[in-house]
Nucleic acid binder design. Structure first.
Lengths: 227, 227
DNA sequence: CGCCGTCTTGACGCGCCTTTGACACCCGGC
DNA sequence: GCCGGGTGTCAAAGGCGCGTCAAGACGGCG
């Protein structure tokens, strides 16, 4: 099931979109301004964002840039402005598509499907989403972690952190990058969050949490997941 | 340089597109019918396809399906038909974007850039910058150093220094430049720092630290990394 | 409205990294 | 042969980042 973030300050537009999307089995979050949009994008990690450019608190293009600083999630811009310049600016800022109001719901949904479809990973053989270590296994797609034959329960934040680390297996991930990918673009220095949650992951997944072998600290730089 | 395949049966449209695209340093191929389009797509492997739906020999949607059978290359549909049904059909067949004629060249080019951009390989993953010497290997992206089959742990300052030297491999780097790049612009004369940390790097990476072969001192000037 | 799980925040001790000073060494010039 | 600038080496001190714990704030759900 795909998650959509709808950003628009006109309630009736939001309502129409939410109804249509939910009817098609999307999970929907909604935001009425740019700040909320950025926060929700970070917190909920939608598969696609529908973004109205005319927001009360900030320029829509700034929202696009704010998102593009840390994510490649498809952004479908919705706007009443029809001029070519607006479109070019939004697209070059990182938007994936641009639909002018009034729009046909069928077309919007088709463009949404197209955006989601091409964002899906190219089905490459043998890049399994299941990662195994000698102590535990993680299935990113199924959102399941296993250890000693038992399921391990992880909170959303723990999952998110784990996911970023596992996707970069073997590579160092800087503290700043972790913070921005998990907590959102406005974070970057709150390294105490990382310490708390790395401890959680280690406690839940490492065989010997006080001597981690898979979640390695690189002092002063970041963390690394080693298979 | 990106390669574009333009598919349209109207010569003046093709001409306009080709001129504009070539002026922006794209390599351009052109096809006037669906069969030629499919052949050229296979032969030339364009980075993006601009496809008119109204072709003389076959339905545009069939061309899309024919392409999608074997490639995920971005397809930007160009069409005179404005109905919602047409758009939905084309998008669901696998098109990435749909622009109706008459179209603004600026907008089309922006949409083209967006299509090419998102098709680019996702960010960093697996683009490792590995430097090898006979004694050790350094992976700048993963922040990993290897020697005698074992990982070598480096502190942040050591990494930073190593990075500057490796990025300037073979070239002399002045003491002042090293100090300013690693310790900040307000440093420039604290050459004792360099001596301490160069010793660290040599001890951790050189086969014979007292006779360095890769981290060479140029007395009175600076240091040089030799592969 | 109250409960429960999750996230945030602060405090504390420890260990490692950085900084700093002292000293030996090499090499050219006097 | 002596001297001095630049360099390599070592070790101690200080500070900062990390792991850990726990309490409080927050938010979703019944």
């Amino acid at each position: 099931m795909n998650r959509v973030l709808v950003v628009d300050d006109e309630p009736q537009i939001v309502r129409a979109l939410v109804i249509n999307l939910k009817a098609r089995k999307y999970e929907v979050d909604a935001a009425a301004d740019g700040a909320t949009a950025l926060r929700l994008a970070a917190a909920r990690h939608p598969d696609v964002i529908v973004l109205d450019l005319g927001l009360p608190d900030m320029d829509g293009v700034e929202v696009i840039k704010g998102l593009r600083g840390w994510t490649r999630v498809p952004i479908l811009v919705l706007s009443a402005r029809q001029t070519s310049d607006e479109k070019v600016e939004a697209l070059d800022a990182g938007a994936d598509d641009y639909v002018t109001k009034p729009f046909g719901m069928d077309e919007l949904l088709a463009r949404l499907r197209a955006a989601v479809r091409r964002a899906e990973p190219a089905g490459q053989p043998d890049d399994s989403v299941v990662v195994e270590t000698d102590a535990f296994t993680v299935d990113l797609a199924a959102k399941k972690a296993h250890r000693d034959g038992r399921d391990v329960r992880l909170t959303p934040t723990e999952w998110h952190l784990l996911e970023v680390l596992v996707r970069n297996a073997g590579r160092l991930v800087s503290q700043k990058q972790l913070l921005q990918e998990v907590w959102g673009p406005s974070y970057g220095t709150e390294s105490n969050y990382l310490r708390v949650y790395m401890a959680q992951l280690r406690r839940k997944l490492e065989a010997d949490p006080s001597h981690p072998r898979h979640f390695v600290t690189e002092p002063g730089m970041g963390y690394r997941f080693e298979r």
